[in-house]
């Protein structure tokens, strides 16, 4: 079991209903893809936010990563939609 700080932005934040939370993750959660699968088991709001999994972007410790990235040692994991700044 590992503990991680999660932060959410834009419509991911709105659909989940909070901007951040700290979660204990089961041992089987190794990568970002595993994390997304695990979150979807936590309730309808997570399912709605993460439904289109391939569009969800992730960052570990404030750096972009892809879904295959291992999350071991992550202090902060962010999940958000494609960016629309500029």
């Amino acid at each position: 079991m590992s503990t991680v700080n999660l932060v959410y932005f834009s419509w991911v934040r709105e659909r989940i209903g909070k901007g951040e939370e700290t979660l204990d993750l089961p041992a089987g959660v190794v990568t970002i893809a595993d994390l997304l699968q695990h979150l979807k088991t936590l309730g309808e709001e997570y399912e709605a936010a993460l439904e289109h999994e391939n569009v969800i972007r992730a960052a570990i410790n404030q750096e972009h990563v892809d879904h295959k990235e291992p999350i071991a040692g992550a202090r902060e994991i962010a999940l958000f939609p494609p960016m629309t700044g500029g």
Partner: peptide, 25 residues
């Protein structure tokens, strides 16, 4: 690069007082 990888998101507020939703990439 800023438009595609800097973490910013735009939400629209419309003139009729409603929220237009998040701008799509």
């Amino acid at each position: 690069f800023l438009k595609t990888s800097a973490p910013f998101w735009k939400k629209e507020h419309l003139g009729d007082g409603t929220t237009g939703g998040w701008v799509s990439a």
